[in-house]
Design a protein around this nucleic acid. Structure first.
Length: 289
DNA sequence: ACACTATCCTGCAGGC
DNA sequence: TGCCTGCAGGATAGTG
């Protein structure tokens, strides 16, 4: 599910009940997700206070009061649900969905936060804050697309000399961290660039960003900001922490719209689907060149 | 260096 | 109704 906008939506939902709260009790219902849980996971969390909840790329970080960090990744199908514990009156419906409730955080704020993940590609880790930057998982992460670093010049620097297709370059978390299949497709369409174009073609011979590079940087920022404002995209699994759906999926111009007319004004193209790096690319061959 | 594949896992849609 | 295939928002390891 979750690319940067969905993870940021989750962060904003969790922050009011997690930041400043203590873990009173932690239920860990299985030994592993994508990776084994840390040793004594529940015991190491219980009693700890969350100082802040932040996001980097598609990772969530809960800074704890013992100088450790709880790292959470939602994989493809992870979600968090917040239940306010009201005098034990809350009833959890017996559903297939509940079978994939793997972790429950009971917090001093009175909230119970349940992590659900059918495919179990998500994970949780506990790291010393001092070790975070050097950890292999984070040391090589690329620039944050909603931060100040992303502009045409940054793309030119990252893509210079690369023959790899734009689609693959934009999915590469070592270059830009946080984009996934949906928002890469959407950003390329907004920028009028083919996913098959060589990444290095966005750099002039003098090493300067082309007009396409500037358009792409602006398109990435724009589509992510709009998606965050919409609460992310809910295709099948993504839920906001209050259980509501995001609604950016209604604003998709090309993603999962094979054979639909291209939405670009005046364009008579049809959205096509091709496979790159084993994943679907949706684009319009008429206006994306 | 790069591109593609398989892999982890479950659910769902579509074809028959 | 069921069985089968393929596909899905991520990320990594391994191959050529």
């Amino acid at each position: 599910m979750p690319e940067l906008p969905e993870v940021e939506t989750v962060r904003r939902g969790l922050e009011p009940v997690m930041a400043g709260a203590r873990f009173i009790r932690v239920e860990q219902r299985r030994a592993d997700l994508r990776f084994p849980f840390p040793e004594n996971f529940a015991a190491r969390l219980e009693g700890r206070r969350v100082e802040a909840l932040s996001r980097r790329a598609k990772y969530l970080f809960a800074d704890l009061d013992d100088a450790s960090v709880l790292v959470m990744h939602l994989g493809m199908s992870g979600s968090f649900r917040i239940d306010e514990a009201i005098q034990g009156a809350f009833h959890h419906p017996r559903s297939k969905r509940a079978a994939h409730d793997h972790v429950v955080f009971h917090l001093s704020s009175g909230a119970a936060i349940t992590y659900n993940d059918p495919r179990r590609f998500g994970f949780m880790r506990l790291l010393a804050r001092a070790d975070l930057a050097a950890d292999p998982m984070f040391a090589g992460l690329g620039i944050e697309p909603l931060g100040n670093e992303l502009d045409g010049a940054a793309l030119a620097r990252l893509f210079a000399g690369r023959t790899t297709p734009l689609k693959a370059a934009l999915l590469d978390q070592r270059l830009i961290a946080g984009l996934g299949n949906i928002y890469v497709c959407e950003a390329l369409h907004r920028a009028g660039l083919s996913p098959q174009r060589a990444a290095g073609a966005l750099v002039s011979k003098a090493g300067q960003p082309t007009a396409g590079a500037a358009r792409l940087a602006a398109a990435i920022r724009e589509v992510l900001e709009e998606a965050v404002a919409a609460g992310g995209s809910s295709i099948s699994d993504h839920r906001r922490t209050d259980g509501e759906l995001g609604y950016f999926q209604h604003a998709f111009r090309v993603y999962d719209r094979e054979a639909a007319p291209c939405p670009t004004p005046g364009c008579r193209g049809i959205v096509r689907r091709i496979v790159q790096s084993g994943r679907s690319s949706f684009y319009c061959a008429e206006c994306q060149t």
